[in-house]
Amino acid sequence: MSSQGRPRLLRRVTTWVGLAMMLAGVVMLGYVGWQFWGTNWTSQRAQKEVTTTLRTQWEGGGKQLRPAFVPKGRASALIRIPKFGDDYVVPVLEGITDEVLAKGYGHFEDNADPGEKGNYALAAHRVTHGEPLRRMPELRPGDEVVVETVEATYTYVLDTDPRRLVIPFTGVWVLDRLPKNPEAGGPQPAQKQGQRLITLTTCAELFNTDDRMISFGHLVRTDPKPA
């Protein structure tokens, strides 16, 4: 290759490399945009559809609609958190798969059902996929979490400040029937057997999913629905 051809080839290679890097940047921005805006749009739409379908099913009643009989991946309850506004209604689905958490809250398998003795443990996204618990850090002891099922409405009151309990994702003690904090003096439910508890879990940071933010509460009221 002549000395004149080498600079021309070098410029051509440099141009193509630059274009490839620009394309990669556009693809990356598109992916990030989809995660932070696209998934929210699709998940919020899915949450509304699941909520509407569940309410329609409840109108017919039936034992099979009780949370204990609802199969994995299906909706079993609706969550309201008055602190988040009057229009805040998010479905609870059985299990904690990615597909479940894209549609609302996930109910951990083998935990108590709403109103039962034990620990009704729930997880939800704080960022992307509808962001049901984006405002989790705003919750305080005394705030209500209202859980509606086909048979009754259960009102829980939070006992712990979520900002005070951030744990690694391996901290499964929070899912125990009566969670006991391994850190002496750390936030935990009152250590009394036979309680009807609720546990909310979500990502502690907006851009990192390694840690979990936790809040515990207990049942204060049960309002059965008319037969």
Rank of each mutant, 00 (worst) to 15 (best):
1 M>H: 08
2 S>L: 06
2 S>Y: 00
8 R>I: 15
13 V>W: 09
14 T>G: 09
17 V>L: 15
17 V>A: 14
21 M>Y: 05
21 M>A: 15
25 G>A: 09
27 V>F: 13
27 V>H: 01
28 M>T: 15
29 L>K: 00
34 W>F: 15
37 W>T: 13
39 T>K: 01
41 W>Q: 06
49 E>S: 12
50 V>W: 02
53 T>K: 10
66 R>E: 15
67 P>W: 07
69 F>E: 12
77 A>T: 10
78 L>M: 12
82 P>G: 08
84 F>P: 03
85 G>R: 05
92 V>Q: 01
93 L>N: 05
103 K>W: 01
104 G>Q: 03
104 G>K: 01
105 Y>T: 04
107 H>N: 07
109 E>A: 10
109 E>D: 12
112 A>I: 08
114 P>G: 07
116 E>P: 00
118 G>E: 03
119 N>A: 06
127 V>C: 00
133 L>W: 03
133 L>I: 07
135 R>T: 09
137 P>L: 07
138 E>I: 08
139 L>Q: 02
147 V>R: 02
149 T>V: 13
149 T>K: 03
155 T>S: 10
156 Y>M: 04
157 V>E: 15
157 V>S: 05
162 P>I: 11
163 R>S: 13
166 V>F: 06
166 V>C: 03
167 I>T: 15
172 V>H: 09
172 V>L: 11
175 L>Y: 06
181 N>V: 14
181 N>Y: 08
182 P>M: 11
188 Q>D: 03
191 Q>S: 12
194 G>Q: 04
196 R>T: 12
196 R>C: 11
197 L>R: 06
200 L>F: 05
201 T>H: 00
203 C>E: 02
206 L>Y: 00
206 L>Q: 02
208 N>A: 12
217 G>Y: 05
217 G>R: 02
